[in-house]
């Protein structure tokens, strides 16, 4: 609590210091540092297996860490006494595979956590859920089940579901990777809207065009370290590290 009360919005909203993470003997993150300011959009790119998912899963404590520190709004995430619920109210997450609740309608998916976790009034939550459905451009699909929606539509419901909790930070883990090329765009537009509204976004993505257009800062990870980072123009046009250059030449 003490750490939290000293945090002010001009300090980094997410502060990652020398984070170490292993699965058994296999070290995935080997000292990651990142400072993210409120309202910033961060893209993490890098080859498969370099630890991108692991890193963002550490930010909302879906994974634990073995060393270093991650602070969200001044609160140490890996403090054993941390109230995970408080953390997850602040940090929303969207997954590659959408992970909607298949037995709930679109509206129910969005309403569930605010009603159960925030104990908010059902009627108010419903009103908010309906406007979120419109915001992600799915008006008319309120009563559909996830199984009746396309991948892109499901992913937008997943984004609305996270937003319904009114998080301060949103994590996106390759949220367009499972989508058809035509539907990728509709999801990216939704994220871009969010970014323009001032939401702090941390994205893992392979969409370089999108990263260049939307991100304030790009991080390139390889084998558990940040090899290079910088604002999009510098990063894409004048990368210095050989590994970054190689990666960019393969992907662009």
């Amino acid at each position: 609590m003490t750490a939290n009360s000293t945090w002010t919005p001009d300090q980094p909203i997410v502060s990652i210091k020398n984070v170490q993470k292993s699965f058994g003997d296999f070290q995935v993150l080997k000292g990651i540092d990142m400072d993210i300011q409120k309202g910033e959009v961060i893209c993490i790119i890098g080859p498969s297996g370099s630890g991108k998912s692991t890193l963002i899963r550490c930010i909302n404590a879906l994974n634990d860490i073995q060393g270093g520190s991650i602070k969200v709004e001044g609160q140490e995430v890996h403090d054993p006494d941390l109230d995970k619920l408080e953390l997850r109210k602040k940090v929303g997450m969207v997954f590659q595979q959408y992970n909607l609740f298949p037995h709930k309608t679109v509206l129910q998916n969005i309403m569930m956590a605010p009603v159960l976790v925030l104990k908010e009034n059902k009627a108010e939550v419903e009103e908010r859920a309906r406007s979120l459905v419109k915001k992600v451009r799915l008006g008319g699909k309120e009563d559909a089940y996830p199984g009746e929606l396309s991948g892109g539509q499901q992913q937008r419901v997943a984004i609305a579901r996270s937003l319904a909790m009114r998080p301060d930070i949103m994590l996106f883990d390759e949220v367009t990777a499972a989508l058809d090329p035509e539907t990728v765009k509709e999801v990216l537009v939704t994220i871009k809207d969010l970014a323009e509204d001032g939401m702090t976004c941390i994205l893992v993505t392979h969409e370089m065009g999108f990263a260049r257009e939307v991100a304030d800062h790009i991080y390139f990870t390889d084998r558990g370290v940040i090899v290079e980072h910088g604002p999009p123009n510098t990063f894409f046009d004048s990368a210095k590290d050989e590994r970054t250059k190689l990666f960019l030449s393969q992907i662009l």
């Binding site: 879906l62 909607l100 609740f101 159960l116």
Partner: peptide
């Protein structure tokens, strides 16, 4: 799927919820 449970947890739902 474990991922469905993770989605629920990352929305702040307790293990019981």
């Amino acid at each position: 799927p474990h991922s469905t449970q993770e989605a629920s947890e990352s929305l702040g739902m307790s293990r019981l919820q």
